[in-house]
Simulated assay, not measured.
Amino acid sequence: MTTAAKPTSVAHVIRSDEEAIAAARQLAARFAVEASVRDRERRLPAAELDEFSATGLWAITVPKAYGGAGVSYVTVAEVIKIISAADPSLGQIPQNHLGVLDILLQTATEEQKRHYFSKVLEGYRFGNAFSEAKSKHAGTFDTRIRFDGDEAVINGEKFYCTGALFAHIVPVVGLDEAGNAQIAFVERHAPGLTIVDNWDGFGQRTTASGNAVFFDVRVPRSQVIPAHLAFDQPTANGPISQIIQAAVDTGIALGALEETKRHARQARPWIDSQQDHGWQDPFSLAAIGDLEWRVHGTEAILEKAGRAIDRALAQPSEESVAEASVVVAQAKVLSAETSLLAASKLFELAGTRSVLGKHNLDRHWRNARTHTLHDPARWKYHLIGNYLLNGVKPARHAWN
Score class of each variant (00 low, 15 high):
P7H: 04
T8E: 11
H12M: 07
H12L: 10
I14V: 03
E18P: 10
A23V: 09
R25K: 14
R30Q: 12
F31C: 04
E34G: 00
A35K: 02
V37N: 12
R38Y: 02
R42T: 08
L44V: 10
L49N: 00
I60L: 09
P63K: 01
A65D: 14
G68W: 05
A69F: 05
V71R: 03
S72I: 08
Y73M: 06
V74I: 09
E78H: 11
E78N: 11
I80E: 11
I80K: 10
I83N: 12
A85V: 07
D87Y: 08
S89H: 07
G91F: 12
Q95G: 08
H97C: 04
L105Y: 04
L105W: 01
A108W: 00
Q112C: 13
Q112F: 10
R114T: 15
H115W: 07
Y116P: 01
Y116F: 13
F117E: 00
K119H: 03
V120M: 02
G123K: 06
R125K: 10
R125A: 05
G127A: 01
N128K: 03
E132D: 14
E132S: 07
H137Q: 06
T143N: 00
D150K: 14
F159M: 14
T162C: 13
G163Q: 15
A167W: 02
V173Y: 02
G174P: 03
D176E: 15
D176Y: 04
D176F: 05
A178N: 12
V186P: 06
H189D: 11
V196Y: 14
G201A: 03
F202A: 11
F202Y: 09
G203L: 02
R205T: 02
T207F: 13
T207V: 12
T207M: 12
A208G: 11
A208N: 13
S209C: 15
G210K: 07
G210E: 10
V213H: 00
D216S: 00
V219R: 05
P220D: 05
I225N: 04
P226D: 15
H228C: 07
H228D: 05
L229H: 08
F231K: 02
P239L: 05
Q242E: 04
Q245P: 01
E259L: 04
T260K: 05
K261M: 11
A264R: 02
P269V: 07
D272G: 12
D272C: 09
D272P: 04
S273F: 05
S273C: 10
D276G: 15
Q280Y: 08
Q280V: 00
A287T: 12
I288D: 00
G289Q: 02
R294V: 02
V295M: 09
G297E: 04
L302I: 05
G306Y: 01
Q315E: 08
P316I: 05
A324L: 08
S325C: 13
V333T: 12
L334C: 08
A336N: 14
A336F: 06
E337N: 10
S339G: 09
S339V: 06
L341S: 11
A342S: 11
S344Y: 07
S354A: 15
D362F: 02
R363I: 03
H364T: 08
R366P: 03
R369A: 09
T372L: 15
L373M: 12
K380S: 04
K393Y: 07
A398N: 06
